[in-house]
Design a protein around this nucleic acid. Sequence first.
DNA 1: TGGCTTGGCCGAACTTAATTCGGCAGCGGA
DNA 2: TCCGCTGCCGAATTAAGTTCGGCCAAGCCA
Lengths: 153, 153
Amino acid sequence: MDELDSAIVRELQRDARQSNRDIARKVGVAPSTCLERTRLLRERGVIRGYHADIAASALNRGVQALVSVQVRPLSRAVIDNFKAFAAGLPEVQAVFVMAGNDDFVIHVGAQDNEHLHAFLVDRLSQRKEIVGFRTSIIFQHLAKHDPEPLPDA
Amino acid sequence: MDELDSAIVRELQRDARQSNRDIARKVGVAPSTCLERTRLLRERGVIRGYHADIAASALNRGVQALVSVQVRPLSRAVIDNFKAFAAGLPEVQAVFVMAGNDDFVIHVGAQDNEHLHAFLVDRLSQRKEIVGFRTSIIFQHLAKHDPEPLPDA
DNA sequence: TGGCTTGGCCGAACTTAATTCGGCAGCGGA
DNA sequence: TCCGCTGCCGAATTAAGTTCGGCCAAGCCA
């Protein structure tokens, strides 16, 4: 992970669909070199994939929420099981396994409030390992897809 | 946003760097048609961008947390101002503007616990509009980059 | 109902990019 | 110093992106 790798990664974070030649030119190496670096980054697991960022409303997810969940007992089996369950639900966009008061935070997207409510009472509430959850509506989501690099220090 | 658009969007969510020809073949249209559809999706704002998914540890963000923040007074000026401030910090990966007990949830990534602590006490604590915040460490992050589509119903 | 218009898709032609691979230069070890 | 290894380059080949004229079908108006 030298400076060249970092520069390539930054470019791919910014725009994953620009051509390899453009990236090569911007980072100052030959296209073949850039291609090989990119291949290795992928192979090493630094680059995990490339994904389009889609407007939530176009995916019928105009209403979003963070759901904080507590489960019991706090055993690995229960945690892994609930995590897999949550990840499998279509409304769920992300699952955070947490330390602290809440064991999970689930990022959910639904078409409207009614669908969100249905999801909460028909899906989540079913699970017997859940001892409590709190739902907070998201007004706005600002995600930074190409953060400036963190100082190494 | 007909079935063809949806199919193209799904493919680009799954792998944003596959060739237009491959996508065209998978969704069953000519490459030129697929290209034009993609252009229009972008123009309409359905597709907002394409981004590489990078392993957190490679970006010096091995430690992540969700920080719930309360600010006062709850005026638009204060909210917009704090949102812009948070979004500008390099450690911040996402900002959620919330309804409910907390006004913001901030997704933060830092090199280690020490850097995270420094961020909290040197950056966040400075802000006079903050009347309280709670930090919860993230053990695991499971993000779904190509969720199955939500039923239209 | 019949002709006209329009939108959207196709495929060929052309331009540009991805990919492969042999060679070379720089570096480190013996 | 010499050898071998690593990583970069650039040319050649294959494949992809992009443009554009033509066609077909659906909708509309008379």
